[in-house]
């Protein structure tokens, strides 16, 4: 199906925009929970916007890849960003607080949901937060925190360290917490 021309997100000035504020959509999570959200907030997700435009929504939009807990968080984010009169500074502050308390597992859920729903701002924020937690951490820390099994033999690992000696010289050992 051919895509219609889209307005840049959040910059609608046409009378359509007013309608979007009052119209509500229902989003359904993988575990069957339903959430109401204004259309103007929902279409900050490019994926939802496409579903609405292609009119395959039919009232309830099923999101089979997002569970209820994660969807509730995502909706909090969308509502804030669609809020009238919220200044950029306020939104920045909100974003900061929104991700700062999240555990790593929650961050992964949110990053996947944001990726699937195509919400650029949220995606950037969560990726940055995950990266911040990884900064200056040892390989062992990364494996432990992210639940990754090493599939290298100790010999292979030694070999790689030799091969990439230039990446292991001159810097203090990593700081783990």
């Amino acid at each position: 199906m051919a895509r219609k021309n889209r307005n840049p997100v959040g910059k609608n000035v046409d009378p359509e925009a007013q309608k979007k504020k009052t119209r509500t959509l229902t989003l359904k999570s993988s575990d069957g929970q339903e959430f109401s959200i204004s259309e103007s907030a929902a279409v900050l997700s490019i994926a939802i916007e496409n579903m609405v435009e292609d009119d395959c929504a039919g009232g309830v939009i099923p999101l089979p890849l997002v569970d209820g807990g994660t969807l509730a968080r995502v909706i909090t984010y969308l509502n804030k960003h669609a809020e009238d009169g919220a200044s950029d500074e306020e939104k920045r502050k909100f974003d900061e607080e929104f991700v700062s308390g999240m555990e790593m597992g929650v961050l992964f859920d949110v990053v996947l949901a944001a990726n699937y729903l195509d919400i650029r701002g949220l995606l950037r924020e969560v990726r940055r937060r995950i990266a911040d937690r990884m900064k200056n951490k040892s390989v062992e820390w990364v494996r432990k925190t992210f639940h990754i099994e090493s599939d290298f033999t100790p010999e292979e690992e030694e070999q790689m360290k030799k091969e990439f000696a230039w990446a292991w010289e001159g810097v203090d050992s990593d700081v783990d917490d």
Binding site: L123, R127, K135, K137, V139, I148, D151, A167
Partner: peptide, 22 residues
């Protein structure tokens, strides 16, 4: 997504992360 996350790290951290797994 992993690539994007690594993009936010200093190159040193990103290169060292190569030891994590295959």
């Amino acid at each position: 997504l992993l690539l994007h996350i690594l993009s936010f790290l200093p190159a040193l951290n990103a290169v060292r992360a190569s030891l994590v797994s295959r």
